[in-house]
Design a protein around this nucleic acid. Structure first.
Length: 516
RNA sequence: GCCUCCAUCGUCUAGGGGCCUAGGACAUAGCCCUCUCACGGCUAAGACAGGGGUUCAAAUCCCCUUGGAGGUACCA
């Protein structure tokens, strides 16, 4: 039997980090066993879903390389893959359960149920719903339902223990006496999640249900539905949830705005991810550009493999020391035995480190491609950028580029005039004797040939030795004069990229800077 | 309230009775490298929630307490 796993996102317009991690585990498990990964769209909740909100989710998966074997865009033998289009299947399944005596139409009103619930509460007992119509014979139930439609509830068997052999949580036992007769079909004929998901998982021949731990308590009623439908339940694996950074609270969409800190806002503005005239409040309200969503990392220039690697290691481990591993290793070794039982906090700092590790080994062309849109958004290069020059800049930046947005921190001055940092000017450029030394060294630069790193380096050494000044000081002054800031790639690398003429122009311009 | 699940450094984790005076990684601090920053190297600090058992031996098994999470919907 081939392994079939699935992920069922709601089309909400954005892809949540926690959801991606769950999807990834499903995908890894399917890949590892040569099976299929299915994407099913959970769009039954009409109020919450907007049809146009599906594309960003598909785009997110595509960016990450999480491919699906059946689902939106490609179809498959068990479609449709949109739950909203499967309503009749749910109704048919519910009718079958009615006919087989596993379900009943519940004619009790909300008020009646409330009275019972209150009674139970005042007696300090928990209320477990058992509709009074559950004793109807199947024939009567069907007849009655046809005459007078109502919600349909599953008949939960009495005095039994439902055992779930969860691949991650272990054996979980629940007494049926604590489970309400769940509504499986609303009085308007639409299906409830617990029912729709089981009907679909059966139809799609899902063999392994890998989902977030929060669904563990949904599982016993679902197992009962499988039973009522006469189908053996699939294997369950409930993955612990992803918590917010440094927190023991679930990373949720609801709290997403909390992660849009002043630093994040500054970051988003820096990479021009949001229109310049947006207020902080508007940025906070934006749902997609938020550190809880994958789109944020795409915009900031994270390598998708890095995100995958990080997410794969969140709640799962290969061994006692491996942090960075190629996807093939992850696929070859993924298993429930090494998935943790407790929640894991999402750590943006560690993600950044992982991203940096991937950036180190990324091919130059990839980095150029990654950096261009960011430079374009910042208005630093045009529609047809000079790839050769960007290649030089990216090479000069080296390991400093952990994410592509870093290009703005380290290399913006290559694409515009220096913006002089007052502190740098004061400390480095206007240090005692430096302006004079720099002026003399500029003369040396004029005659420097070839204008390359070794020659420049040798000239500076010779000059500072002859003038009895610290090479470092001259170096710093040269950096500030030509780049405006204290940090960046090696000075000589910068000068070579500028070229002699531009270098001299920048130094000359720096002499006009006022003293503090 | 009731039901279910969870509990090792700030964070991600290794650990499934003796290899543990608890290992690795991120972050933090210091030193080294160095023209700055980043990278790299070295070092430091930092955890078995508490209490009972079981055992010659417990981070590891059992129980209780505490803490946390999720559920308890004609939400998903």
């Amino acid at each position: 039997m081939t392994v079939r796993t699935r992920f069922a996102p709601s089309p909400t317009g954005y892809l949540h980090i926690g959801g991606v991690r769950t999807a990834l585990f499903n995908w890894l498990y399917a890949k590892k066993h040569g099976g299929q990964f299915i994407l099913r769209i959970d769009d039954t909740d009409a109020e919450r879903n907007r049809p146009e909100a599906l594309q960003p989710i598909l785009d997110g998966f595509q960016w990450l390389g999480i491919t699906w074997d059946e689902g939106p865009g490609i179809g498959g033998p068990h479609g449709p893959y949109f739950q909203a289009e499967r309503g009749n299947l749910y109704r048919d399944a519910a009718m079958k359960l009615l006919e087989s005596g596993h379900a009943y139409p519940c004619y009790m009103t909300k008020d009646e149920i409330d009275v019972l619930r209150k009674q139970a509460e005042s007696a300090k007992q928990s209320y477990v719903h058992r509709g009074k119509d559950r004793t109807l014979s199947p024939v009567d139930a069907v007849r009655l339902f046809k005459e007078k439609p109502a919600s349909i509830r599953l008949k939960v068997p009495e005095n039994r223990t439902v055992v779930i052999d969860d691949q991650i949580s272990g054996k979980v036992e629940v007494q049926t006496n604590t489970i309400n007769d769940p509504v499986i079909l609303r009085s308007d004929g639409s299906a409830l999640y617990n029912f729709a998901t089981v009907v679909d998982d059966i139809a799609l021949k899902i063999t392994h249900i890998i989902r977030a731990k929060e669904h563990l308590s949904n599982t016993p009623p679902q197992v009962l539905i499988y039973e009522a439908m006469g189908v053996p339940p699939p294997v369950f694996a409930h993955v612990p949830v992803v918590n917010a950074p440094n927190s023991n609270k679930k990373l949720s969409k609801r709290d997403a705005h909390k992660f849009v800190t002043p630093e994040v806002i500054a970051l988003l503005r820096a990479v021009h991810a949001v229109p310049a005239d947006w207020t902080d409040e508007q940025i906070k309200k934006n749902e997609t550009l938020n550190p809880v969503m994958v789109e944020f990392y795409r915009v900031m220039g994270y390598l998708p493999e890095g995100l995958i690697n990080y997410l794969g290691r969140l709640g799962w481990s290969l061994d006692d020391k491996t942090e960075i591993m190629p996807l093939e290793t992850m696929i070859a070794n993924f298993g429930f035995d090494r998935v943790n039982q407790s929640p894991a906090s999402f750590d943006p700092q560690k993600l950044l480190w992982v991203a940096g590790e991937y950036a180190k080994s990324a091919p130059l062309e990839r980095k150029i491609d990654g950096v261009i849109p960011i430079l374009q958004r910042a208005g630093l290069v045009g529609a047809t950028p000079d790839r050769d020059r960007i290649a030089k800049v990216v090479t000069a930046c080296g390991d400093r580029l952990k994410i592509f947005a870093d290009v703005l921190n380290y290399a913006a001055f290559f694409f515009r005039d220096p913006q002089y940092d007052p502190k740098a000017v004061k400390q480095r450029l206007h240090k005692d004797g430096m302006p004079e030394a720099l002026r003399e060294f500029a003369e040396v630069l004029k005659s420097t040939e070839p204008f390359d790193v070794p020659t420049l380096e040798a000239k500076l050494h010779a000059f500072s030795e002859a003038k009895q000044i610290k090479g470092g000081d001259l170096n710093h002054a040269l950096r500030v004069a030509s780049t405006g800031v204290m940090v960046g790639p090696g000075v000589f690398e910068c000068l070579v990229i500028f070229g002699k003429k531009e270098t001299l122009r920048r130094i000359e311009a720096a002499f006009t800077l006022p003293h503090a």
